[in-house]
Design a protein around this nucleic acid. Structure first.
Length: 213
DNA sequence: GCGACAG
DNA sequence: ATCTTGTCGC
């Protein structure tokens, strides 16, 4: 498939973005991540109870990797596997946190946005580095943040989730807004810079990969 | 043309 | 992301 076609798909999906979180107070949060083998993609979803940060359910989905990693098109590589793993979850999850950007993307279609549209559920993107845009380094205290701007638009934030640790980039996916994104990410982050559900999904996906390998 | 570029 | 052990630093 040509890159120009993928861009057309992103521009079409972009029109479906719902920039508002109309859910209730978050009771269940989930982290989604993918680990790779030479030929397979292993997606993992970890659902946790927000109030106790305890695991309530996990799911996995393995499939052949059909798309390479191309900056700006990560969703075409991971979104399907993640959507399938999410489909196996029985718990009614309030919000899903994904490893990548939401609308902090050239066409506002980062992994979290794309996957959020596929499953039609609230999603937040939490990336370790910037894909596009500009920002100022935030303060060193937990909770300090600065805005990420693309095309003169605030699309997300650079957030310090842990004192002294490298900040993460948070942006709304689908059915989500910046304010709630910040609140939710900070709410499920304690001893590590990465939100607990996402941190565990990363560990579990890799554990699963190393077993069959 | 040059440099940047989530996982 | 993946290939990989110990090691420097708070």
């Amino acid at each position: 498939m040509k890159l120009s076609e993928l861009i057309r798909i992103q521009e079409t999906l972009r029109k479906k973005i719902e920039p508002v979180y109309s859910g209730n107070n978050v009771q269940f949060v989930a982290g989604c991540d993918v680990a790779y083998t030479h030929e397979n993609s292993i997606a993992c979803v970890v659902v946790m109870k927000m109030s106790e940060m305890s695991i309530v359910e996990t799911s996995f989905h393995k499939e052949k990797t059909r798309f390479p990693y191309i900056p700006g098109f990560l969703a075409f590589r991971e979104a399907n596997a993640i959507a399938r793993a999410i489909a196996k979850i029985k718990t009614t999850v309030d919000v899903f946190i994904l490893d990548g950007h939401g609308i902090a993307h050239p066409r506002r279609m980062g992994l979290a946005t794309h996957a959020g549209i596929l499953v039609d559920r609230p999603t937040i993107g939490c990336a370790k580095s910037l894909l596009a845009g500009t920002y100022r380094m935030p303060g060193k205290e937990k909770g300090d943040f600065s805005t990420v701007i693309i095309d003169n638009e605030v699309v997300g934030i650079c957030l310090r989730t842990k004192k002294g640790a490298k900040p993460v980039f948070v942006s709304p996916g689908n059915h989500m807004d910046i304010e709630n994104s910040i609140k939710i990410v900070l709410q499920c982050t304690a001893n590590y810079k990465t939100p607990e559900p996402l941190r565990l999904a990363h560990i579990f996906a890799n554990r699963k990969k190393n077993m069959e390998a």
